[in-house]
Structure formats: C-alpha cells, structure tokens
Computed example of a mutant assay.
Amino acid sequence: MDDIKAKIVDILKDVTGLDDAGQDADQDLFKDGVLDSMATVEVLVTLQDTFGITVPVSEFDRSQWSTVNKIAQQVQELE
C-alpha cells in the first residue's frame, strides 16, 4: 500500500506542480484546492495508465477520491 501511496503522491505533484501535494495522506485535495475538475481528470487518466485500472467516470464520487489514502484504497479495489 505504501508503494501505491508514493506513486499517487508523485502523480499529484506532477499534475498540480505543487511540491507538497499529497504529503498529508488525509488532506482533502478538493476542499484545500489541490485538485480542480481539470486536474482530477488528469489524475484519473494517469492513475489508469500507471496502475492498469479503469475508473468509471460516470460512477466517480469525489468523496471517495478526496485524499491520498482514499485514492489508494480505490486503486487497490480496482486492481
């Protein structure tokens, strides 16, 4: 799980350009303005490419993807 979280943090840093993006695994990325709708799409596409998963956008619920810990949980479930 730590490897997944590390990759997610790297993806967040690349997409947002913020060095501290995702450093707090429980930070609400939407509430704190780290992710907006465009960045979210880019993160989802990168997650799909990196982990070989399919994230159904029609079923995407921000509350389930709002922190690094939650993203890691979703990735694990979809792998």
Rank of each mutant, 00 (worst) to 15 (best):
D2C: 07
D3E: 14
K5C: 03
K5E: 08
A6L: 12
K7T: 09
K7G: 00
I8W: 01
V9Y: 00
D10Y: 01
I11N: 01
L12V: 03
K13C: 07
K13A: 08
K13E: 07
D14E: 15
D14S: 12
D14K: 15
T16K: 07
T16I: 13
G17P: 04
G17M: 12
G17H: 09
D19R: 09
D19P: 03
D19S: 15
D20G: 10
D20T: 15
A21P: 01
G22E: 02
A25N: 12
A25I: 12
A25W: 05
D26G: 11
Q27I: 06
Q27H: 08
Q27D: 09
Q27L: 11
D28K: 11
D28S: 13
D28Q: 11
L29K: 06
L29I: 06
F30N: 00
F30R: 04
F30K: 01
K31F: 05
K31I: 11
K31E: 14
D32P: 01
G33D: 10
L35V: 10
L35W: 01
D36S: 10
S37T: 13
M38S: 14
A39C: 10
A39N: 12
T40S: 12
T40R: 05
V41D: 00
V41T: 14
V43G: 03
L44R: 08
L44A: 13
V45M: 10
L47C: 06
L47D: 02
Q48A: 09
Q48E: 15
Q48T: 11
T50M: 07
T50V: 12
T50N: 10
F51K: 11
F51T: 09
F51L: 11
G52L: 11
G52W: 05
V55N: 02
P56D: 14
V57E: 06
V57M: 09
V57P: 00
V57Q: 10
S58C: 12
S58W: 03
S58F: 09
S58Q: 15
F60M: 07
F60P: 00
F60W: 06
D61M: 14
D61S: 12
D61G: 04
D61P: 00
S63I: 12
Q64C: 08
Q64P: 00
Q64F: 06
Q64Y: 02
W65H: 03
S66Y: 00
T67E: 08
A72F: 02
A72E: 07
Q73D: 14
Q74K: 07
V75H: 05
V75R: 04
V75Q: 09
Q76A: 12
L78R: 15
E79H: 11
